[in-house]
Amino acid sequence: MAERRESKKKGAAKGPARDGATTEARSAAPTAPARLAVKKTYKLYLGGAFPRSESGRSYPVTSADGTHLANASLASRKDARDSVALARKAFGGWSGRTAYNRGQILYRVAEVMEGRHGQFADQLVAARGLTRAEADRIVSAAVDRWVYYAGWTDKFAQVIGGSNPVSGPYYNHSAPEPTGVVVVFAPQTAPLLGLTSVLAPVIATGNTAVVVASEAAPLPAVDLAEVLATSDVPGGVVNLLTGGVGELGPHLAAHADVNALDLAGTGDLATGFEETAATTLTRVLRPGPEADGGEDAWLDTDPGTTRMTPFLETKTVWHPVGV
């Protein structure tokens, strides 16, 4: 904004004021701003890169009041398949990192996001018609959510797992492990805090994710992907698809290399996806009461382990004790 104001002054000094021109003056001669804003192309985020959809398709995204904001990539079935393959490829490395390291990286996400606070607030004002103050509160809560889960990475195993006092001379303990590749259907009406609230627990626990962003408000998700890309989150740990839940969902629900689904943003499609997932016994987290409640429904600052345990397996290891 500062730059644009400056150019206005220059224009005023040299000749007729462009921005301050009367309606008649505009209709008389087409005008352009002194500096044309550079608009962002919103792309997918796959394997750490930002490609367009392989289909070459895009769809218009509008603000809460119907103004055109941008064209988002309209991801295809092949993009969905590619994203699962990339998430699978990243799983061994991400789940194999130390819990401490995953915590450091998630905290870094919060740091980088905090630096882009204004950008995210602008997006929410546009996408959801929030006031600036409301938007600021949601962005702050989203940043804090990353901090929250950064702290969980090296604690949930102790909270959930433990040693089992079996009746015999055996060492026996149970520990949680990530289930694998999780498809996250982000909440439709909570494109930033809702998305953060469902994605952060999935990757905090060592899973890798394929995210299907809010269909109507995908832009905050793409901005978040840029934060992830610059926060040492390895490529492929989070893969972002923008597009139709109805188009992408059936393929992801049926995909044999997907281990779990978070159906938060699937609305009426949830039951069909759950039925499809049954074929490969893919774990399913059904949409809860908060799924359609807008960003405010996700303000609980202490969701506990409720969004982590659905994406964890318990492994129990036995070994005899003896000399």
Partner: peptide
Amino acid sequence: SNTFNKFDPTSP
């Protein structure tokens, strides 16, 4: 490990 088919009510 170094055993098999052991079960116990305390063991998930």
